[in-house]
Design a protein around this nucleic acid. Structure first.
Lengths: 223, 223
DNA sequence: CGTATGAATATCTTCGACAATTGACAACCA
DNA sequence: TGGTTGTCAATTGTCGAAGATATTCATACG
């Protein structure tokens, strides 16, 4: 175990990847012992990991009943995306003018990793790289709290993002959009970039609306 | 222990009141065993409580080093208050038109409780009532995620709010401001109310700036 | 005199076991 | 038959102790 690596962080990682991989689906119950078995840890760090994911909004907790993967309604997704639309432009306007060559290089690297993962169908890697890409354009000194809020909004919808990243077409579209964004960032075209991101989000939301509607139909009829 | 009351919730409550009471001051280390002794619990639930407060931003965590009460710089407070200035008007615009008589009655009750606590110098009660008052004007269906973010911003600065609520003058000023806000809310004067709250926040920020500067001077000289 | 070394201590981290609670199911009664 | 009650298995919640890590302080060295 590397430095800073703790049993807790392992448990968190395990849970995240289980959610992203779809092993833990929205609405499903998460049983502590199962996670403990799966990770090879005892329940103590697992409980703390569950608590972390709960605070991030990915899990819901009912005392003495346990944890459940958060199931979002379409209205929730719309609210979350609207909040992102409010906050992310603020972050980008502050951060983009301050990016230096190194920062841009990191962002480009993230975009490349994203493209690579998209081709391989490595959903969880693509999600991580995608996140680095977007946050790379928003990170600036003096807005750590703003980024904390934005990160929380991203966390809340991680399971759903994983859902639509399973469509190859969407992965390709995301890669193309990233290219354009990177270009705008390098040109310093802030407002243009913000526009693109808004469109990016809208597209994602549209897709999610469809997926959730389909899911609801299945729940309503099929069972 | 009542239903839903768990050792964790006791530990959380203990920590909150210790922070609000000033027993745990910004920058100070929080030792798990001490909390366990203080609450009469074992460390397991205490650790989970610490994790909760960490996610709220009230504590900071360094693996294998422990927890520290978050120490905010003036810049942090300014950022947090700016974020509140961005988000709270959104919540109020959506919520205020939907408030019914019952809601207003609850808000009025919170204001009264606030005034009462202000006279008695019951800082922790006043903080709780103050929170109910303000959130009562923002709570509306369909914006639970927005409120979650706002709550997080409030949590992050709870220790500092406790700091300036120890000044009787400020407590009085807050009570008066609440009266005016309540009046505006009852008249449905949304924009007016938003203005008042902005001023309310500005005043708090101004005060905090002074307090922190004084604190820094003490740390620089006195020791 | 300042710095590096190394025990000793304090603290965090994890574990395994036990107690408490919940939900499901079957037995029972009207 | 319909509803209630009691029992049981599964799960969560808590504890106390042992193991791992960081910090401190005394000591020796350059």
């Amino acid at each position: 175990m590397g430095p800073g690596e703790t049993a807790l962080s392992q448990a968190v990682a395990w849970l995240r990847s289980a959610i992203v991989a779809g092993d833990l689906r929205p609405g499903q119950r998460v049983i502590q012992d199962r996670v403990a078995e799966g990770t090879g840890l005892s329940v103590a760090p697992v409980r703390e990991a569950l608590r972390v994911l709960e605070q991030e909004g990915q899990l819901q907790y009912i005392p003495r009943r346990g944890y459940f993967v958060t199931k979002l309604e379409i209205a929730d997704l719309e609210e979350i995306y609207a909040l992102r639309a409010t906050l992310e432009p603020i972050a980008i306007r502050a951060a983009l003018p301050q990016l230096d060559e190194d920062d841009l290089a990191r962002i480009r690297a993230a975009a490349d990793e994203c493209a690579e993962a998209a081709m391989d169908g490595a959903v969880s890697q693509e999600l991580a790289a995608n996140r680095s890409f977007h946050f790379g354009m928003m990170e600036a000194p003096g807005q750590s709290h703003l980024l904390r809020l934005i990160a929380m909004l991203w966390d809340s919808t991680e399971a759903y993002r994983a859902l639509y990243y399973n469509f190859p077409d969407e992965r390709q579209a995301a890669v193309l959009a990233h290219e354009a964004m990177l270009d705008a960032a390098e040109r310093g075209a802030v407002e243009e970039l913000i526009e693109m991101q808004a469109a990016h989000r809208e597209r994602a939301l549209l897709l999610l609306r469809g997926l959730l509607a389909a899911g609801d139909r299945m729940n309503g009829d099929g069972k």
